[in-house]
Design a protein around this nucleic acid. Structure first.
Lengths: 202, 202, 202, 202
DNA sequence: CATGAATGAGATTTCATTCAT
DNA sequence: CATGAATGAAATCTCATTCAT
């Protein structure tokens, strides 16, 4: 009887390792042997689970998105107040990065860049979908935050894009220069400012 | 010194070409021969002007920043009203992109990723400086926009970071999916919302 | 010794499979896993019966020759007329191929090439022996065919080589392009022509 | 001004070298580095002229066929008597082999085997075409050899196939065991027997 | 015994850089 | 100066063989 193995688990192991190496060295400079070493397996073993380096890249991208998604939704599920939810959402990225003690920032930039370049392919669609879903979540949270009797003249879909955009834009600045400001603080302020601005706008 | 000028012109020509190719294929997947072809010169000629691919990368980054900076400051100089200035600043990126018909976003992401990862002094410091300067500009414009009698409790430096962040964050979303919203419109709204939010906040 | 028999059966099973795959993909491009799959056993199991891929190659060659030999001699034993025997011999290859629905030609060419190139005693000697035996059989059949009163000036050993050669040469042409001619028909004609030629020659 | 190079000449050089190595080691066991070494160039240079090892294989196959063709037709052009032409044709292969002091036999077997396996592809069609042309040449030579008043009942197209087949079949036997008979002698005898057989047959 | 997951030696292929022309 | 042919270091990828289960 042969050793029976959980292929999906092993794949996840490899992706876990690849994400770590991608984050540290960058996707372009990561060699298959680096991933193998990080996963503590042989170079050839990688090819038992993935057909090519590119396939690993795409798979690790999806894997990463799913993981981030699940972390964020788990976190949001524990909160009921919409403003609190928004604030929790705002600081999630920073905590994911810090919590994993990993430079996820760079891998995200690599993923973004690659997604944009391969705009029409599966990987980009996935990211587009992720943004769409996030915009919907934030949109509905924003609508809950703004008093019902005072409808803002601003489209909440665009407002959601702006909020998400500000969080990511801040994130980039913060990653480049962590002394520029405190990310969590800035994220919270951004959220509040945008809500305030929406309430006032009319 | 006509020769010197000629040399600088040729270098600029190569950098123009390299930026185009970097944007389209990504820095990592760009071959020296791609750049040579785009610049319409021989592969070996590149090495008359740059010592290595890496030197081209760094130089093209600086070249790119200078170009963007000059476009933006030229544009701002023609405007006096602070709010108008802010709005002009907001939409600058989109126009740079559209005007050049180039996915500048991807090259910026590559630059970001590379500078963060390798902590390259030449690039990273430069990028930090650029953000610092931009924050200062936006900070002072924001202060001009907010009525003097109503001082917001929010630090305008952080507010500037938030505004810049939202513009870049929106930019990324827009590049990924141009049907999600109209970038210029969203940039304008974001600027207004943040100003409104700042005015209200206390 | 039931175990021994079982073992031989399994070996034969693997060789059957390997011959099929060798014929389809070529010896060089055949992977051990291909053979395992064709034999419907595990990859590792192969190594319970053979020490290496090369050993399989040599063994499958012998196995193949034995099989062809037994088919031909069984067929010839049922016939007594020497001309009929020769004609039966002539069409044997085509029937072996068609009966097995296999491109035996390619495996034979691989075997030939490999034995010539590497001067492998195990294979080459065997092949030389096979040809020698066949030439002897055909030689004696030819001698029976030619009327005793008219001895041809041609050495019947060379004549046998020519007959065998023509059958194999036709076989190659036919395998390459089955629409070129009908193999069995051509084999029969070749046999007759050569006998006629021998009878006339003086 | 760059070094100007004749690409086709260089390609021919590489093919010349590859054929030598293929003949010695077999197509399957030949490494790119073997070819590079034989051509006395760098490993990477090969890829300036051919996209892959497989492309080299196909190209060298065509190159080889052309070369053999030109040798044979040059030889035939110098002869006018049809029987002499046939005999010259018969011994051509042996002389090509001996004259080049190369084991062309094995490369031919490799090419045959590969052609048969990839039956529907370009390489096979080429070989099919070569046989077709040769059959036509031999057919017309045969028709010239047989007296006009005595039409043989045998289709000369099949007779041509048989003659070509016998030459190649003898060639294989001779390559396997050069002591079995003298190839040129056997080729000549075969040609005569077949002509005699054709004349008598009806 | 039978298995197939794991392996790494060794093959193919890429491409930044050099350098003769 | 300008060039592109040549190169080989270094990457990707393959697969015969081993071995724990």
């Amino acid at each position: 009887m042969p050793k029976k193995i959980n292929k999906e688990e092993k794949k996840a192991n490899i992706l876990e390792a690849s994400i770590k190496v991608f984050a540290k060295k960058g996707v372009a400079k990561t060699k298959i042997s680096d991933i193998a070493e990080a996963a503590d397996i042989g170079k050839g073993t990688i090819y038992e689970y993935f057909r090519s380096k590119d396939e690993i890249f795409v798979a690790s991208f999806h894997f990463f998105l799913e993981k981030v998604d699940s972390v964020i939704s788990r976190r949001l599920n524990r909160i009921s107040d919409p403003l609190e939810k928004l604030l929790a959402y705002s600081s999630a990225w920073a905590e994911i990065c810090e919590g994993n003690n990993l430079e996820y920032a760079t891998i995200v930039l690599d993923f973004w860049a690659e997604s944009i370049r391969n705009n029409r392919e599966a990987i980009a669609l996935n990211l587009v979908k992720v943004y769409d879903e996030n915009r919907k979540i934030v949109k509905s949270l924003l609508e809950d935050c703004i008093t019902k009797d005072k409808t803002s003249s601003v489209d909440t879909k665009i407002a959601a894009s702006i909020l998400i955009g500000s969080l990511e834009g801040l994130f980039i600045q913060w990653i480049l220069d962590r002394s520029a400001f405190d990310y969590k603080e800035a994220a919270k302020i951004s959220t509040k400012i945008i809500i305030d601005g929406l309430k006032k706008g009319d």
